[in-house]
Amino acid sequence: MTTPDAGALFDGLAPGYDGDHFHESVAEALVRGLPATVSPRLVLDVATGTGAAAFAALRHLDARRLVGVDISPAMIERARGRAAVQDADGRIDWQVGQAVPAPMADDAVDIVLCASSLHFLGRAALHDWLRVLRQGGRVAFTLPPAETFRPSGAFAKLVATDLPLPQDNGQAAALATAAGFEQANATRLDITGERPRSVFLVHASAPSRTA
């Protein structure tokens, strides 16, 4: 499936995306799971959608600058609309583009966020995040449990084949460790309601680079 086709699929989700509070709940829990950081200079939200994780980082981390990138122009348009209220001083830079490689220089980012999208991006995203993160920078991402994830239709074709979905916390954390991250840990988040769903929240650190 080509990039324009994938973008069009997610464009179709954009009008009702914010009506599903699952995404907001996941983004909030993902950001709250990060250690207290005093005003990170730059936060990258990969596959930002309508900006849930970026806005959570703005609230809880007091980030000085954020970049939210997504393949879907319609998602970014909705994020910019939300930003009129949630980012009045314009700290978030919204960009339409591919997630991998991220539109960032090497060693430039303090925190990388990726909520509800790594299963579409695959292992290349993990390695690219190591590229953009500064020494000791943090990554926070989610993955759905293998036993409950059942994508349908065209979206099933987008799921990465090189990144096995985890069955437990240990497997989720191990994916970060295998990619080269350190101090990886994972917890399972279960969202109840009319449509119960679960995700693993994974947090890890980029290693210090030695000469």
Rank of each mutant, 00 (worst) to 15 (best):
G97I: 04
D87G: 07
P166R: 04
E77K: 13
S25L: 15
A27M: 08
G33S: 01
A99E: 09
L42E: 08
P35Q: 07
T37I: 15
V26A: 06
A53L: 11
H21E: 15
A63E: 00
L113E: 06
P73R: 09
Q135P: 11
R59E: 12
F10D: 14
F181W: 00
L44F: 01
A63L: 00
Q135M: 13
G137L: 02
R80V: 13
A105M: 13
Q183F: 08
A79H: 11
S205Q: 13
G7I: 11
A125G: 08
A47W: 12
L175R: 00
H23G: 15
T2Q: 07
D45V: 08
P103V: 12
L143Q: 01
P103I: 07
R82H: 14
A27P: 07
N185R: 09
A146H: 05
Q167I: 07
L189P: 06
A63W: 00
V43A: 06
V109A: 05
A57Q: 04
D18W: 14
E147I: 13
F10T: 14
K157V: 12
G180W: 11
V43L: 02
A8P: 15
G153T: 12
M1Y: 10
E28M: 09
T177H: 03
R80I: 10
R209P: 03
H60N: 08
H119M: 06
L34Y: 03
C114D: 05
V132E: 01
R123W: 12
D45S: 06
A140L: 04
A184L: 00
I191C: 08
I71N: 11
L175G: 00
G7P: 12
R197G: 06
G49S: 13
I111N: 06
G33E: 01
F10Q: 13
A172H: 01
H203E: 04
M1K: 11
F120C: 11
P151W: 13
R209M: 03
L165C: 00
D18H: 12
H23A: 15
R32M: 10
D11H: 12
L121E: 06
N185Y: 05
T50P: 12
P73K: 11
A88Q: 11
M104D: 15
R150L: 10
M75L: 12
F141A: 00
A83W: 09
C114E: 05
D110E: 05
S205C: 11
L118V: 05
P164E: 02
A146D: 03
H60D: 07
D107C: 09
R123S: 12
R65C: 09
L42D: 08
L113N: 04
W94S: 00
P151E: 13
A108S: 09
D11Q: 09
D70R: 08
G193R: 04
E147N: 13
R197V: 05
A124D: 09
E28A: 10
A56P: 08
V202D: 00
V38I: 15
D87P: 04
H60C: 07
R78N: 14
E182Y: 10
R131H: 06
L113K: 01
S39H: 06
V139L: 01
G90D: 06
S72C: 07
A160I: 02
I111T: 08
P15F: 07
G12N: 14
T161H: 03
D5I: 14
A179D: 03
I71F: 10
D11P: 12
